[in-house]
Design a protein around this nucleic acid. Structure first.
Lengths: 337, 337
DNA sequence: TCATTTGCTTTAATCGTTTAAAGTGATAGC
DNA sequence: GCTATCACTTTAAACGATTAAAGCAAATGA
């Protein structure tokens, strides 16, 4: 059973290809196609089970009605959330999402972006990885519509949607202080990504504003290549200081999960021995014996904003939007009361 | 900066489009293009930052080098695992993956499949949803290469890759029996999907083979529309029988997670009050105070087998493969020893 | 010297659509 | 009776690539 095209329908009905195209694109009225032919064409399309070849259509129209999405790692809870939100929003506008995961790798990221461009996506939504500035600049030079989400580079002016990471970290730290903590550790990745630096800044600023003298052993920077081992060491460190920490704030859900596993292992009780607070959400937080207090990112809103912005960009070209969103502090029982 | 095509390069160098195409497709040798021109063309392509228009190429070649993937729900751990595996495997063969999530909805599933076909994917990898038999038959009639994973319909002969669900459930149940359990509940969805029925069958058969008289209150069927409430009720039921169950086996990770939340809520201790075993994997299982004993599905192998089978189908057409895989029982501390 | 071969390049059709523009026969207006 | 309009329909040129087939000098052979 070979593919049926406009030609087959045209032959079947005995009219030209153009007429078929008009009818099937809802232009029967305006092109004044006779009711009789319109009727026959529709029937034939149905009968032959015609499916328009989007590839041909895209080629002609210079529009694929597709947007490309590159997330940092499909295994992150954040990624699945944002993917879902973006898909749903895109569908409303009749766009399909072409999707890839860079696995936080610079080369994979570049390759994915390239593949998507070659497939003529109308625009891109990207969660950029560390050191991908050149790729971003390339996109700007090539005038390809794109928006960054979750992360951005302060030195490059882009359309982006991200959490106010500084504020979120500030609020979380302030919350721990309000709960009576005086020695709060912050475990973050050792990275040069701006959004994670902002979290450091929020943490530090909150300490300062509350007159807590920061001890640099409190800020632990994890090498993402040796995550598990490093987190264990970091926790050992902050728990065995002369003045041990009584709270720990994890900069991401992955850090928190690995950290909590270790705390379980060494039988440290949360929050009796140490309070725990984490960025992001995770199903695992709910199964921990005490719901882990965490900062929930508004993924739905983020996805919607990203798609909306991108579509504006695609349709009316020049706009410049930097959207900053706020997180919710979900209070569980993992912090001292 | 408008898009550069073969034409632009041709004009820049002062040769025909054909020559450019030959060179950039590595046919310089066989088409005996002069070294001089070949050199200039490559240089110009580089200089002008040429990117082949895959859409045009696909139209001409009747091949998109794209495979479509429809998962049941991007939020499932299984989905992200399988997606990653399929992407990695597809990339090796220079295929891109176009991806969608049906959210277990029949109509969304049909729509996604259609969108993918219209985009001329070379083949499909599908996790079919309940009642999607007609879609599958349609694909067969249209002779579109596809393979099913995770689930299949016994009444339709298809290429598929799936776990031996019967065996997995049997092994898990037998394990619980070996640990001394005599009253084992099984919580499954109320569904007509074959793979979940197979899990029921494995559970029942294991009881029978071990001379345990099955009590029909032990098999709880959850309506997926009211998952949370139903699970709570089911657990209440099995814990409050005249002869309460001392073990519960969840048919999926989502069921287990919700079940464990409820067990936490009513302060039932695992495994002291009740042993717990679950199908699938979840990050959350590791954060539960006792690692939840579970059946791990071989997603990597599954993804690889799916891509390999599909590519065979695409290239050499007629084959018929039903691949059955085995799960691993990961023993944690959630079952009585 | 003329025909053939060699080495390289161009021409032009094609993929399945879209859509201006042109074509056609009937009817209406003057 | 001649032109204009109307109500349709077809023609044909794109879109950006691929690739047989044809074209064209220069070199070689007889």
């Amino acid at each position: 059973m070979k593919k049926v095209g406009l030609k087959d329908i045209a032959e079947h009905v005995g009219v030209s290809i153009a007429l078929v195209s008009y009818v099937l694109n809802g232009q029967a009225e305006i092109k004044q196609v006779s009711k009789d032919n319109a009727q026959k064409i529709k029937a034939a399309a149905e009968l032959l089970n015609y499916r328009p070849n989007q590839i041909a259509k895209s080629l002609k129209m210079h529009k694929t009605h597709t947007i490309g999405l590159v997330v940092a790692d499909i295994n992150y809870r954040f990624s699945t959330g944002i993917t879902r939100a973006i898909e749903a929003e895109a569908k409303k506008a009749n766009y399909t999402v072409l999707f890839g995961s860079s696995n936080e790798n610079e080369d994979t990221f570049a390759e994915l972006v390239n593949v998507l461009i070659n497939r003529q996506v109308d625009g891109l939504i990207l969660v950029p990885v560390e050191n991908s500035q050149d790729q971003i600049k390339m996109l700007q030079k090539a005038e390809i519509p794109f928006v960054l989400i979750d992360r951005n580079f302060p030195e490059i002016t882009t359309n982006h949607i991200a959490l106010d990471n500084y504020k979120a970290a500030y609020i979380a730290t302030a919350y721990l202080i309000k709960q009576g903590h005086k020695r709060i550790a912050f475990i973050n990745y050792d990275t040069n990504m701006f959004h994670l630096h902002e979290r450091n800044r929020g943490y530090l600023e909150a300490l300062k504003d509350n007159n807590i003298a920061f001890d640099e052993d409190w800020l632990q920077q994890i090498n993402s290549n040796n995550r598990v081992g490093d987190i264990d060491q970091s926790l050992d460190k902050i728990l065995n200081l002369d003045q041990p920490c009584d709270a720990v704030f994890f900069a991401t859900d992955t850090l928190a999960i690995n950290g909590l596993k270790y705390l379980n292992k060494i039988k440290a009780k949360v929050p009796q021995d140490i309070s725990v607070l984490s960025f992001d959400e995770s199903e695992a937080f709910e199964l921990f014996y005490n719901l882990v207090t965490h900062l929930r990112q508004p993924v739905e809103a983020m996805g919607k904003a990203a798609v909306d912005t991108l579509l504006e960009l695609i349709n009316h070209s020049k706009i410049n939007k930097q959207i900053s969103l706020e997180s919710d502090l979900i209070v569980g029982q993992s912090c001292r009361e």
